[in-house]
Write a protein that binds this DNA or RNA. Structure first.
Length: 329
DNA sequence: CGCGTTTGACCAGGC
DNA sequence: AGCCTGGTCAAACGC
């Protein structure tokens, strides 16, 4: 499996984090199994014959092998999920829980409900801003259907400050085709209407209009969800995976439990991946910079070593592993 | 010639 | 019923 191959596994040290170990967690059971091996090896070595010990060790080994197999699958699955999320999550913008309030500037559902308004497909409205700073709000708008039910349409409103001389539309990584322009009553600037041009069946629409108060601010409203992956662009890199000229194997993804910082040290010859989950949403760019610094990595390695050497279970498991490698006297 | 943009006309909902 | 407005269509146009 590709995801498993690309996932340099991995020793989850949970550095400095009170992560909860579920009893069913393969990650934890794997470590516990190793500890069991250690205790078995150390505790029984003096009271049983070497053949009995070998049988027990073989049974344990089989058990741990199975655990490791499940662990590998789980990590591959988690890795794939994190990659998907990182690809879909725009940079500098966290997923916000969508409210159910209707957008004051997006009267979706007011007009006729056409076939093209069917936006209940999978996907999302994630579209990043490639210039300036953007404020985004996610809104779920209920669009009434002819049969009396309501369809929930994701509406994302983004405000971006641009160079006034820049007449280009908001760049967000998707391909758009303009299909209309209208001067609205409350804004002298014309409103442009765009459809997603990447996939003919993609229902996403986008409205772009300069702010009435500040012409340097462009307000883009996205309606619907893309039913296709984001088009890749040359030079575009997911998250900060290669920040620092590609020498720093760092990636950051965000999930429901908060940001996850993955530092892959395998490229420097190590074999350790640290997964850290925080509760608060940090400044990702700042975190990337910090993670990329040699000081951070040195401190991280030092802390990992401290954690490892201070973990009795780990040292026991290590001792058991060494015992297994020793010739049977 | 093909594709994307422009722009006036048209449609539908709200008042 | 008629007007206003936002949204969409499609022919014309430009590159």
């Amino acid at each position: 499996m590709d995801t498993a191959r690309r996932s340099p596994v991995c020793l989850d040290l949970m550095v400095g984090l009170p992560m909860v170990c579920e009893p069913s967690s393969a990650r934890c059971t794997g470590m516990r199994a190793q500890a069991d091996i250690a205790s078995s090896a150390c505790g029984r070595a003096t009271s049983m014959t070497s053949s009995e010990a070998n049988k027990i060790m073989e049974a344990k080994f089989t058990e741990v092998t199975e655990e490791n197999r499940r662990l590998t699958e789980m990590i591959g699955y988690l890795y794939a999920n994190s990659q998907n999320f990182a690809r879909q999550s725009p940079e500098g913008e966290g997923e916000q829980p969508a409210s159910t309030a209707a957008s004051p500037t997006s009267p979706v559902g007011k007009k006729r409900s056409r076939e093209s308004m069917d936006t209940s497909d999978s996907g999302d409205v994630n579209s990043d801003k490639k210039m300036g700073t953007a404020e985004a709000e996610h809104i779920d708008v209920e669009s009434p259907l002819s049969n009396g039910t309501c369809r929930r349409i994701k509406v994302k409103r983004v405000c971006t400050r641009i160079d006034p001389s820049d007449t280009s539309v908001v760049k967000d990584g998707y391909q758009w085709r303009k299909y209309g322009q209208k001067v609205t009553r409350d804004n002298p600037s014309p409103r442009a209407y765009f459809r997603c041009a990447f996939a003919p069946s993609c229902p996403v629409k986008k409205k772009v209009q300069r702010s009435a108060e500040d012409s340097s601010v462009v307000e883009a409203t996205y309606e619907g969800e893309h039913n296709h992956p984001r088009p890749t662009r040359a030079g575009e890199l997911p998250s900060c995976a290669t920040q620092g000229g590609g020498s720093v194997p760092c990636s950051i993804s965000i999930n429901s439990s908060g940001p996850t910082i993955t530092l892959d040290l395998t490229k420097n010859g190590g074999g350790v991946q640290v997964v850290e989950a925080g509760e608060a949403q940090p400044d990702l760019k700042k975190v990337c910079r910090e993670v990329a610094s040699p000081e951070f990595r040195a401190a991280l390695v030092e802390q990992m070593a401290r954690e490892l050497t201070g973990d009795r279970k780990f040292t026991d498991a290590l001792a058991a592993a060494i015992l297994r490698k020793l010739p049977d006297y």
